[in-house]
């Protein structure tokens, strides 16, 4: 046994989980899929005194279209969202992103919400949440509150969630336009490993091929998943030709301030961000252009 000893409780409601969190505060940890928490416990980087198991809570497993958003319960497994028909249709960027998330064995167990609250700056799901400007719904004993994904992530594994709060659901805005295209790319040492840098983009084109909406973000190059609304503003109203995309990619490299580490220098990360931004914008534009007329 590698983890430090802990008390274990499997709760039957989210309210019960919130009660336990309120009682034990920072000594308690929630576990759902456990694909990030259990390795940290094995290395004793995490040693919660209490483990509160929310893995079986059906109230955290909904996937539904509500208004202009796809609402995903925090404990929905990554393999479920990968195959869910509503998610594939309305949230294609998430589907592209999931191909890069871990491996079959970890996606079968890991949850969408777990990846968000774990807040690894190179993780794909948090990046999608930020790029699409998702809203996170948090619950504690006093009720629910909302926070924008773009304001949730502060630093590696540091977020706006309080020790007594549980992520209940994530609302991903759905782009209601006929010609929406997207792309997700990353560079890692080995497929399924943490990204050195990742990039994703989603664009919407009008009937004449002009960009009406664009969103782009970079992962792994900042201490948090980095949405870059400046790039969207730069592209909207224009035709996404190669020249404009190259200018946007150069702008991306100027907007980030990566750190270097054992795996990649800061310069290499900046270079990757520029190249990947170019690739995802081109691919997203092509994807959108292939849909609908002209």
């Amino acid at each position: 046994m590698k983890a430090a000893p802990f008390e274990y409780t499997r709760v039957s409601t989210l309210a019960e989980a919130c009660e336990l969190l309120s009682e034990h505060g920072g000594d308690a940890k929630l576990i759902a899929g456990g694909q990030s928490l259990v390795p940290m416990m094995a290395m004793r980087l995490a040693r919660p005194a209490w483990l509160v198991d929310i893995n079986r809570l059906e109230e955290l497993k909904h996937v539904e279209l509500r208004g202009d958003a796809l609402v995903v319960g925090a404990a929905v497994r990554q393999c479920v969202i990968e195959r869910n028909a509503d998610a594939v249709r309305s949230l294609p960027l998430m589907n592209r992103a999931l191909k890069w998330v871990g491996h079959v064995q970890t996606r079968n167990r890991g949850t969408v919400g777990g990846s968000v609250v774990h807040a690894d700056p190179s993780a794909e799901i948090p990046l999608v949440a930020c790029v699409l400007d998702a809203t996170l719904v948090l619950q504690d004993t006093s009720g629910r509150s909302e926070v924008a994904a773009r304001e949730f992530f502060f630093a590696p594994m540091v977020t706006a969630i309080a020790p007594e709060q549980c992520l209940a659901e994530i609302r991903f805005p759905v782009w209601d336009a006929p010609r929406v295209g997207c792309s997700f790319e990353e560079v890692s040492i080995r497929h399924g490993d943490f990204a050195l840098v990742s990039a994703c983009a989603q664009v919407a084109l009008d009937a004449d091929g002009k960009c009406v909406r664009a969103a782009l973000g970079i992962g792994g190059a900042s201490p948090f998943p980095h949405a870059l609304p400046e790039i969207g503003a730069m592209l909207e109203g224009k035709v996404l030709d190669d020249m404009l995309i190259e200018d946007a990619a150069v702008a991306v490299a100027g907007l980030i301030d990566p750190d270097g580490d054992l795996h990649a220098t800061a310069e290499y990360r900046r270079f990757l961000a520029r190249m990947l931004a170019m690739r995802v914008l081109k691919a997203a534009a092509e994807d959108a252009a292939g849909k609908g007329a002209k």
Binding site: A3, Y8, G34, Q35, V38, P39, A42, L51, C79, V104, Q105, T106, N108, R109
Partner: peptide
């Protein structure tokens, strides 16, 4: 479904 048995209690 295939899973990693070291990542669960």
């Amino acid at each position: 479904a295939p899973v990693r048995s070291c990542l669960m209690f």
